[in-house]
Amino acid sequence: MHLSVNGVSKSFGDGRQAKLVLDDISFSIKSGEFVALVGSSGSGKSTVMRLIAGLERPSAGVIALDGKSVHGPGSDRGMVFQKYSLYPWMTAAQNVAFGMSLQGLPRALVRERTAYFLEVVGLQDAARRLPKELSGGMQQRVAIARALAADPKVVLLDEPFGALDLQIRESMQEFLYQLWQRSGLTALLITHDLEEALLLAQRVHIMAPRPGRIVRTVEADLDRSNLAHLRVSPPFLELREELVTTLRNLDAAAS
């Protein structure tokens, strides 16, 4: 699997009112990688995500998955939104099953895979509960299970923990990291939280706003055997501090 974003620009509106939101974005992800895009709010992160998902079209440049250029949305690129994306009338299990059933998989297989993915995210006991009966963290785990169950080649996560309380956010970060390690999924994580990006992703692209562009790429080669320790380890804090300064200078320059 190889996802490539090549020289992609995006403007909204046309003529004089056209607004350049993304300027010449290029990066790529290979099978099994965990890549993060970090930037302050308004730097165009979600737009990158929507372009890859096929929900928007680039104004220039090409996005290709395994050599085929992307036209429109498809189940090979799964997506997890920040919030409000579970179907409120479906139980957790029905939400997880929804993609497979849209794709016309046999019922027995759908049931089996639903049970499997609910267990992967640790929610086998919540299978018959409605989204409104689940906590925010549980809801996002259902959304992740639903995306995985549709068998995508790459999972796009747009600030998946952005709406959660700090403590739950930390445990969800652990959860996502372990999920990635165990299942070998390929993930593109979008976040405005530099710590989250450095903690989870092997490669972090830093974006600057107006227009949105990648200004720096960091290979975060860190020992992730214990995330709680990593959070407070000197090399991690140093790297984080340096990048925070970079981001702050960028924002100051842009405004």
């Binding site: 929900l55 189940s75 690129r77 997506m79 939104f81």
Partner: peptide
């Protein structure tokens, strides 16, 4: 949009 990315 979620339905679209699930193959709907």
């Amino acid at each position: 949009e979620t339905a679209l990315t699930l193959g709907g």
